[in-house]
Design a protein around this nucleic acid. Structure first.
Lengths: 249, 249
DNA sequence: CGAACGTTTGAGATGACTCAAGCGTTGTGG
DNA sequence: CCACAACGCTTGAGTCATCTCAAACGTTCG
């Protein structure tokens, strides 16, 4: 099923069978998109939402001189532009990084689904908020970590997200982006990113080669990147997530 | 009215009189909170949402060594934790920067409002997505701008947001945060932030002194910070916002 | 085979950091 | 009402991480 990875393993927001069918039936188009293709341009009105089925896409913001900052990455199962539903136009661009397959769901369909099923509406809302949570983790990464830490944190995140949708076994995964992409995501230059990758390899933490990333020492890599997966809102493998304390106030 | 600044001047999402009244009536508490007080701790379950009425609050993430990255700032009129409604726990902490007044609305009330009024639900969703949009702009700032640019961009943002809620005349505003706060928001050290502020002053762009920020040359400051206010989703002063092109696909 | 693209490496420049000290307010208790 | 502690701001000097510029190398693909 095209939607089978959407909200997979997301804590408390997993879709019911009925919800998944409803979403599946709302799909009006399935498209194959080549790598490096812009899907959505900032400021232009949007009337459909795009569910990523295969491949990787990025959100990015350009400065006046053409320097680009990646502000988000999407993996299969993510809605890349669900937020266009309440917002109607976006503040950033969305483009494929690798060749991708996407499913199209018109906003009109989504509005109908939400009207019929309030729970599904809340889950869609939830999924856009996970994107916001990712943004915050990216801010932490870029604002507070050194270059090695940033790349380590980023790779830990991608590994965890792909693991949640069965595209990583936790130790290696296919990730066909360039070092320049990695650099744009981490706020580094591609030259320095290259050196960072070498350092990670020489430290025995991970290897990044062509389209394969191998995590050699996951605990050490997570430590180096100050990585805590809480922000991904994934289901804990061992039952309920530990709720640390009682309510505030 | 306590809610009068919520979504004020937000493009296409301004509340109707009825919606505002409904929200106002859902408030169960009004609290005065001193500066530097934690409102919400990451990972703890939340059952109410908090609307900021006066003062400034921040969202932040700590690393293992206690280094802090601000990942968000809230000004009067912002819901600081509306996203706790679909998410139930947060991935980050929220604390006051200055003495603040907040209004409390229980999640149960919000759920009731959304069930009664789908449009209001979409507007609440919208307001959480503006936060996400701010995160993206912060990522761009921290990932792609130099120190002077980051501070310039940040001050432009605060000025524009305060202007939208009538707390800035566009040229100066009260903003009682420390240089250390500014540094944590921009991914800099406080020492360097101090030097940056001097540079901005000497270049005649703005002054930051005690609780007052003065914008001396707004166009130049916005240029220096690569600032484009689109991402704030504010109402254009002169009628409709220019929609650059037709729909995608 | 050659062009295009991505990766790798080197050398030098520089922006931001660290450490350290001094200064100016503000608030508080003797 | 003064003294002093606490806090935030300011400045200097030296260091280091990352950037810039430049060139070489290896694949892939037409």
């Amino acid at each position: 099923m095209l939607t089978s990875r959407f909200l997979r393993n997301r804590c408390g927001a997993e879709l019911t069978r009925a919800e998944r069918m409803a979403l599946e039936n709302a799909i009006t188009d399935i498209l194959d998109i080549p790598a490096r293709t812009t899907l959505i341009r900032a400021h232009e009105p949007v009337h459909v939402s795009t569910l990523l089925v295969e491949g990787f896409t990025s959100r990015y913001i350009d400065d006046r001189k053409g320097l680009r900052q990646l502000v988000g990455l999407h993996v299969p199962g993510d809605f890349v532009d669900l937020h266009s539903l309440p917002m109607t136009t976006l503040d950033h661009n969305i483009a494929t990084l690798t060749a991708s397959k996407v499913a199209i769901i018109p906003h009109a369909q989504l509005r109908r689904l939400i009207a019929q099923d309030r729970e599904l509406g809340l889950k869609l809302w939830f999924s856009t908020l996970v994107d916001a949570s990712l943004h915050r983790a990216w801010l932490f990464r870029v604002g507070r970590l050194d270059a090695v830490g940033r790349v380590a944190h980023f790779l830990c995140e991608v590994n965890a997200r792909l693991e949640a949708v069965d595209l990583s076994d936790g130790h290696s995964f296919t990730f066909g982006i360039t070092q320049a992409d990695l650099a744009e995501a981490c706020g580094l230059t591609s030259v320095h990113t290259n050196r960072v990758i070498r350092q990670l390899r020489e430290a025995g933490l991970c290897t990044v080669r062509a389209p394969i990333v191998e995590i050699l020492d996951r605990p050490a890599l997570e430590r180096r990147g100050n990585f805590d997966p809480y922000y991904l809102y994934l289901e804990e493998k061992s039952g309920a997530r530990p709720l640390r304390a009682k309510a505030v106030r």
